Simulated scan of single mutants.
Amino acid sequence: MTDTESPRLATEDDFPEMTALLDRYFAYERYGMAARLPFCYDPERSDRHAVIERDGAIVSHIAAVPQTLVVGGDTVECWGIGGVTTDKRYRGDGYMSQLLEFWFDRMDDADVPLSELSGNRQRYNHFGYENAGAELRYTISERSFAGTPEPAADAVAIYDGSDAQLEVLREIHGREPYRVRRDRKRSRITFGQRGLETLVYEGADGPAYLSLTRESRSRTIKEFGGSERGVEALLGHVLAMYDLNDLTARVHPRHPLGDVFHRHSRFWQQRPHRKLNIRDLPALLEAFEGQLEGRWLDCGRSERGDVTLALESEDAAVRLSYGPDRVAVERVTGEPDVALDRLSMTALLFGFHDRQRDVRRRDPFLEATLPLQFYIWPTEHV
């Protein structure tokens, strides 16, 4: 007879066995997950990990990491799902489904409006996750960068973990309109993760930084910020000093420095950013009220009206009322104007412009304000 336990929260004592399972399937090195994703795998935060035991051993794991997304002037709570793995000998027994449902119950109890993850779309569609957001990937080469003035070498330094440099990075990143909110501790952890190198520019043109992968001749810029000239100087430094096959930058489409990467790129492509699962639609739209109002007022339209949205098979609905000078979000009852399943609602609110196009065209407010904008920098993907 086998001894199979239901999902439970991990304990600090579980961490060595739990991370050994994860290292075997993801990191391929001992303690690799803890070093590469230190903001996820902290033994002092074992409540972020759920496991299943069988025959006296941990055989399945999923982490749920609380994040506060900054979306312009507002914030929204979002739990990132990561470390989804089951020992190969025990796959097919439904452990992933059990663990995800375990976390969904806790998200609902905590009134968390949103969850996000990466991974195979078809695999996670079944659980309500759909492609959301957009990300541009620019490929830059020495030839495409040719003709740019050489940066002053003494203005570029490798981040060494000093308090002074950390404060420069924190100040720059804190101005990003779309990000995960970080305190000082999380900032230090993020920039100190294994496999990441950060270069800091402190020239007269204003500070800037690039954080890029460091273990291959094909490098990816996973985070950046600061002055336009500073970022351009750092790009020039990397291309001049490093022996690279290629350099790729991952950029939010609305980032104010996007033109720098576009100007110097050899080619680019747009891809879905993450996968989102809407857990509480009214709470989500309340959190995005400031962004909705800002986008509506910026477009200068004069229509007045309202549109009510709801998830199919759920009683909770939310009315979006709009006019030339205001937008209001309120919870209501009754028949909605638009009722969609969870995947379609995610596509409407966060998908590419061609997703749910007919629904958006039904109402001027939806057409003008969607898709909603968010971004989780690759340095913090769980």
Rank of each mutant, 00 (worst) to 15 (best):
V338Y: 04
R331P: 05
P324M: 04
Q67V: 08
G133A: 07
P66T: 13
S6T: 14
Y138V: 05
F365K: 01
L166F: 10
D306K: 11
L285D: 13
A317D: 06
E314P: 00
C40F: 03
E215H: 07
A316N: 10
T198N: 02
L247Q: 12
A208T: 12
V70W: 03
R48F: 14
E142G: 13
P272L: 04
E167I: 01
A153G: 06
I62Q: 11
F39L: 12
I158T: 14
L348Y: 08
V382W: 08
V332T: 08
V238D: 06
R175G: 02
D154H: 15
D160K: 09
V112G: 12
T85E: 01
D337C: 12
D363G: 07
V332C: 06
D298E: 14
F267C: 05
G294I: 03
A339Q: 11
G192L: 08
R36V: 13
I81V: 15
F104C: 04
A35R: 13
T75F: 02
L348A: 09
T86F: 10
A249Y: 07
L320W: 07
G119V: 03
D93H: 15
H61Y: 13
P7Q: 10
F26L: 04
F26T: 03
E293G: 00
D163I: 06
G161F: 08
C299H: 00
A146K: 07
A249F: 07
F352P: 09
D341T: 03
A10R: 08
V318Y: 14
E176M: 09
G94P: 07
R217E: 14
L100P: 06
E130C: 02
T379G: 01
D306R: 14
D109G: 12
T139N: 11
E228N: 05
E12I: 11
L136I: 08
Q165P: 05
E171L: 02
A240R: 12
C299I: 06
A132G: 10
R355P: 05
Y201M: 10
H262C: 04
N245F: 11
G161I: 13
I52P: 00
R360C: 04
L244S: 07
P272S: 07
L311P: 03
K222R: 12
P364Y: 09
D23L: 04
I81P: 09
S313I: 01
E5I: 06
T75E: 14
H173R: 15
T346N: 13
G203W: 03
E142T: 13
Q356P: 08
F374G: 04
T369E: 08
A132Q: 01
T148H: 09
D55Y: 10
H237Y: 11
R188S: 13
F267T: 05
D93T: 11
T4K: 11
Q98D: 15
V59N: 05
D154L: 09
G92F: 07
E176K: 14
I140W: 09
V112D: 10
E44T: 15
D163P: 00
L21N: 06
V307K: 06
R181N: 00
E303W: 00
I140V: 14
A339W: 10
G203N: 00
R143A: 15
D160Q: 06
S227T: 02
E135V: 14
T198I: 02
R362I: 12
P253G: 05
L349S: 05
E286Y: 13
I140F: 10
Q193G: 02
L196G: 02
R184E: 14
